[in-house]
């Protein structure tokens, strides 16, 4: 067991954790944040994507002890004060979701893209989402949602949402 201190979605925690426990299991079992899903447990599908110090990572490939002193954002931390982010709204508007199991990871990856690059081209979107599989949709509605969110976030509208 090792004691670690970290923040998740802005909240500070100190916890004891087994050295071999993955971040994915730690978030789900110890912090009770079940929005992050296990799709493959092998770093292939992206369903467990979270932000670690603003970088998207597969939580199934990161050990919980590695987040010591760091900041984690999960899907539960994307909506602010219960209000959906423009990206979440766009996913809903464009019907970019079917079963919903890949959605949290998909939104985290897209969120990270828009933070890095507020003006993504279609190729940038493909690059950013490449590690997030979806078995239900044909990805088109996901691309449309991300493009729309980028449009919404453009400074000219500068609405603080």
């Amino acid at each position: 067991m090792k004691t670690i201190t970290f923040t998740v979605n802005g909240q500070k925690y100190t916890r004891e954790v087994e050295e071999h426990k993955t971040l994915l299991r730690f978030l789900r079992e110890d912090i009770s944040l079940t929005g992050t899903k296990e799709g493959c447990g092998a770093g292939e599908c992206g369903a467990c994507t979270v932000l670690l110090n603003s970088k998207p990572v597969n939580a199934c490939l990161v050990l919980a002890v590695e987040i010591d002193g760091k900041e984690v954002i999960t899907i539960e931390g994307i909506a602010q004060d219960g209000k959906l982010s423009p990206l979440q709204e766009a996913f809903e508007r464009h019907h970019a979701i079917q079963c919903g199991f890949c959605t949290p990871g998909m939104i985290i990856s897209a969120h990270s893209l828009l933070q890095r690059n507020p003006n993504p081209k279609r190729e940038d979107i493909q690059e950013a989402i490449e590690g997030n599989f979806c078995r239900c949709t044909g990805y088109l509605q996901i691309i449309e949602a991300i493009e729309d969110a980028a449009e919404q976030l453009k400074p000219k509208k500068s609405k603080k949402r």
């Binding site: 929005g35 899907i75 959906l84 996913f91 809903e92 019907h95 979701i97 919903g100 959605t103």
Partner: peptide, 12 residues
Amino acid sequence: KNVDMKMHVKGQ
């Protein structure tokens, strides 16, 4: 649209 989507996008 799918009625579950609001929950899906929040991981709820």
